[in-house]
Design a protein around this nucleic acid. Structure first.
Lengths: 374, 374
DNA sequence: CTCAAACATGAAACCGCTTACGCGTGCTGT
DNA sequence: ACAGCACGCGTAAGCGGTTTCATGTTTGAG
């Protein structure tokens, strides 16, 4: 019953065939058919290709007998479906793209890992692209992803080249923006409010009585999240009638610990009253600053309060542990994955409620000048 | 000259056609042809589809005039090629897979980011899969990648389910193993010698005069790299007639800082002489241990020397900075990417020379009992 | 000036899988 | 007993590109 048609070896005959005046030929298939294809499975199982496809993709549409025969044939022939053919025929790639600044930041790595895991469970594939802050490269990467046929795109931040959005909408590729709750496109965002969080952590320092502030932030080109964090700090301080002196505002080279240290050095070298509170745009910078401050003989938080943003793993283990904003990367990853699945499988486009970025008060903040008596 | 054939609207006629006794029908193409296809471009440019394809993929095979016409049509129609169709027709996916334990470890994140960047330059796509230590899941992930048509696979460590290797070889998918120089399959590895590096850092401690050692290592199930690091330490110590006492060998839950701290607590709570040297299987554990040791009032390195493995960003900034082994993740990523391109584009399968994992001596190690007078 | 080799282009056969259609069966209702 | 339905399954038409041939068209050598 499982015997194959012996003569049907898959080798076509080279034979000109007169038909309607046109000479038609068939190409010779390469004799060494290395790959097992779906029709090999079908022949082996003694059923049609359609049945094989159905048995595997929509099992309840076929009889148990057929299903069994097919799975057996698949197993015996060790068949692995061809994803490209599948994608082409079904017009579904089951692929999602994610464009992030870098994997070098723990939070993005966690986002990606979570996304990949969650989407993988639903048999989707994640394709990543790391592009720091060049609009050109982002567009290019986006185009590449659209070519690859991503059915959805995950972006970080609203600051994207406008052409990218046009591309996505013309191709009808859905997208979601993370790490922000959005200003211009809140209807596409799954994230939290950077501005508000920055404002809150600044408020915490103000409540402690600080009046002289410093700040270290990485470059904010094409980075609306940093822009918002900086704005949140500035505006909150302004409400209290305070401004950061120019010499106390340092633009770090990157988001590294080393940048934080050198930023701290710059600030300490600045003329005028020494600030009592330092706000860093992320925890790498904050960690570096804290370490450098201590190395320079400053007591934290007695001489200087330091706060960060992100709550990286290391932050809780610094001495003193860092006051910071906890960014819900894992939750974001989960929410985003669920959202994507909802859109793709059920057409539900409603977004989940915004996530919370909690203020985590630890030991690196205290009232200015508070001695270590307490 | 560029006028389209007006009647050829893409809508096929529904018409049964008698031919050889079989009734054939053509399906009606959906009237709203949302997507611009290659033949739309061809029609718009007034050339054949073959020419369009050639003009874009092998430009020097066509005349400049045609090339210009085609690129113009592409631009005007805003055409984006369909990757699946391309892959199916060309039997090339230009996709590479990478299966790593996690993105939560900075080194793997850096490897992946480098890989993605380098392969991306050559217009390849990277597909990642994070699987910690389950053979089952790894196989599953591998199968998924083969289905997706990866042309090459990057693995971490030699400890992989044997079936995975069979799958790869039967599908003729090349692969390379990273983060190890290999014991069973050195001919597939681009990495460094974990055993040797562990041996060297142990030697460093022995030279300082330590005699009582402790160790913290994460689980080594399906993790040959950790197994080798542990073996390297054990064997080197044995050469000096020393063994780690069971109560001083702690298996951490994970690779986190927190695990390192709790490992340190366990060791400090152990009965008998306190060890003077602690070897951790990675820098997260080492950082945690170092922090915990200090929190418990131990002086590092005076009371306890601590070493790690990996040289994460934070390691150099700890107080004292951590003596460790620098793992060449970026170099590995670059080497691996170049190797893959060489194999795929030129058929050159010769591997680059093994990479070096350098011992970085910093402040966390000293002779036992050396007071802080120095 | 003639003939062949080199070049530029088009027609159409795939790549391997999904799926719209239609046909034959076995059941149900009357 | 017979029309009418569901249900299972096979046939074959795509999906949107690439690539092999074959066919003009030039170009270059003799």
């Amino acid at each position: 019953m499982r015997s194959e048609t012996p003569d049907d070896s898959g080798l076509a005959v080279v034979a000109p065939v007169e038909q309607g005046g046109a000479v038609q030929r068939r190409r010779v298939r390469k004799a060494t058919a290395v790959t097992v294809r779906l029709d090999d499975v079908a022949r082996h199982a003694g059923v049609s290709t359609a049945s094989v496809s159905r048995a595997l993709n929509t099992p309840d549409l076929v009889s148990p007998v057929l299903r069994e025969r097919v799975t057996k044939a698949v197993r015996e022939l060790n068949w692995v479906p061809n994803g490209a053919a599948k994608a082409l025929a079904s017009l579904r790639t089951r692929t999602v793209g994610a464009m992030i600044p870098t994997l070098g930041h723990q939070n993005f790595a966690l986002l990606i890992e979570t996304l990949q895991r969650e989407l993988g469970k639903a048999r989707y594939t994640l394709q990543i692209g790391c592009v720091e802050n060049s609009a050109e490269l982002r567009l290019q990467q986006g185009l590449k992803m659209v070519e690859q046929g991503v059915e959805f795109l995950v972006l970080v931040g609203e600051a994207q080249p406008p052409v990218l959005f046009e591309l996505l909408s013309s191709r009808k590729v859905g997208f979601v923006i993370t790490y922000t709750s959005g200003k211009e496109r809140p209807e596409c965002c799954i994230g939290f409010d950077n501005y508000d969080a920055a404002s809150r952590i600044t408020g915490h320092l103000l409540e402690l009585g600080h009046t002289i502030f410093a700040m270290i932030a990485q470059p904010d080109v094409m980075n609306d999240r940093i822009q918002q964090r900086v704005a949140g700090v500035r505006d909150r301080l302004a409400q209290a009638g305070i401004a950061i002196r120019p010499q106390h505002f340092t633009r770090a080279d990157s988001r590294s610990i080393e940048s934080g240290r050198s930023g701290m050095r710059t600030i300490l070298a600045a003329a005028g009253d020494r600030p009592t509170a330092l706000i860093c745009a992320n925890d790498y910078l904050a960690s570096g600053a804290l370490i450098e401050a201590k190395a320079r003989g400053l007591a934290v938080p007695e001489d200087l309060s330091v706060v960060g943003f992100d709550d990286t793993d290391m932050s809780a283990h610094l001495e003193p542990p860092l006051t910071t904003i906890r960014v819900p990367s894992r939750e974001m990853g989960e929410e985003v994955a669920q959202h994507i699945l909802r859109v793709l499988e059920q057409g539900i486009t409603r977004l989940p409620p915004p996530l919370e970025a909690r203020l985590i008060i630890r030991g690196s903040t205290a009232s200015p000048g508070r001695a270590h008596r307490g």
